[in-house]
Design a protein around this nucleic acid. Structure first.
Lengths: 242, 242
DNA sequence: TCAGTTCATATAGCGTTGCTATAGGTGCTA
DNA sequence: TAGCACCTATAGCAACGCTATATGAACTGA
């Protein structure tokens, strides 16, 4: 009974639906729950929103405006690719902050209304990527880049939402983000396809690591650890191949 | 009435559910539809599968076996990164061929059963990435690479499913695919936003050695030595990012 | 051979769901 | 005051997921 009183029934329905949607961890939300919380009866809902999906669409529209506001909120840094990175992070953060709403927006429930929202989100990205393209920083068409980045962004966010909050490792996001931004940006050295030589082995890898370790003065191990480590490496790398 | 007759009711229920799930374009499928098509009554369903979700889980399990079979079907090319690319394409193709099943598997309906399937799919990728790592072709931990690639793969597939079949542009998939594979692979000129060029050779070598050691059961070290060795390797190979 | 047990299916119906046919109340303009 | 939109409530329908109970079929051990 939180929304009795001053607000018009339409608003009360919207807020009640949003609240129940946010609380119910993925479970279904019934119109009876919504109307009861809003303090109205069923026909009021259907008068204002047509049907249950219409109400949810309205909730999503409100959520999407919040999302768009977040995507536009920061001051442009002057470096479009940096701004793209912020948009990515904002996207992930929005998804983790409001997972239920995010799932309704970008998940696959109700596939009909999804494309419109995806297209809007794509537009936001593309807008920014156009600036990057204008600055000569883009390797591909802004539209293709936007689609690709958004797809990866959604995939990452869905995966993060799906796993328990305690285990969430945001490095998945940063790593994928940088990979995608790098892929569409210019100034990259060579391309991905080629592989070198072929089969490696414990020995080859050990030799490489040995050389690299001695050259770089890694501080990940103490000196005594390093000594023993190198001894083992030597033992491995001088043994017969397998 | 397609499944009357010879097959046992359990199989008839499974096939009826799969068929209705595939036909209904995203719409809900009722138990009454399923049982009617299977030619049985309601309690039979609940006797065999517990509840509706149990039946759907069984359908998903069957679909997932098909998916796994597809992921393993081709002969390894000897070039792990090429095989990763095939796995990506197979993933997308599976999603487009059976969108409803895919949405149940990788979409967000029923978030409880999702992580298990995602983990399995991740395992398939990681398995192959371990070979790449053993060959010194990987820039990051195979597990992280698998998570990142799978997230992007799911995101792309969902986006392709969401848009009308006529407008589907598979270039979105190939572009994102190559971007992700390139990002986790070695032999790239420099990397995205970060620097750390000096240490990266240590990291790559450590990752390769780690994978190779675990795969080869080397007998150059005692088991206790090996344990400590691997722990140090892990420390080195996870020390790069921030 | 036959009672006992288990498995598999059917009959009938419960409670809840999304939704609506109908009607009544409210406030505005003429 | 009459008329007319607009908004909301009463009551209830068909479809939903699911189950208490009962019946048949198949097997088991004496």
């Amino acid at each position: 009974m939180s929304f009795d009183g001053q607000l018009p029934p339409k608003m009360r329905l919207l807020r009640a639906a949003a609240e129940l949607l946010a609380k119910s961890a993925g479970a279904a939300v019934s119109t009876r729950q919504i109307t009861q919380l809003a303090g109205v009866t069923a026909p009021t809902l259907y008068h204002h929103f047509g049907d249950k999906e219409g109400l949810f669409d309205a909730v999503v529209a409100a959520g999407f405006e919040e999302y768009v506001a977040g995507e536009r909120d920061f001051a442009p840094s002057g470096q479009p690719l940096v701004d793209i990175r912020r948009m990515w992070d904002n996207h992930v953060q929005f998804g983790l902050a409001q997972p239920e709403l995010y799932l309704v927006m970008f998940g696959n429930i109700r596939p009909e209304s999804r494309p419109a929202i995806v297209a809007d989100a794509e537009g936001l990205l593309e807008e920014m990527l156009n600036k990057a393209a204008a600055a000569g920083q883009l390797n591909v068409q802004p539209r293709e880049a936007a689609r690709s980045i958004l797809a990866a962004n959604v995939g990452v966010t869905l995966m993060l939402i799906a796993e328990p909050a305690a285990e969430r490792n945001l490095e998945l996001s940063t790593m994928t983000r940088d990979a995608m931004i790098f892929a569409v940006s210019r100034d990259q050295g060579r391309d991905a396809g080629a592989e070198d030589s072929g089969k490696s082995s414990v020995v080859v890898a050990a030799i490489a690591l040995n050389a690299a370790l001695q050259a770089s003065h890694s501080d990940q191990l103490t000196s005594s650890e390093l000594k023993l480590f190198l001894e083992w490496l030597h033992r491995i790398s001088t043994s017969s191949t397998s």
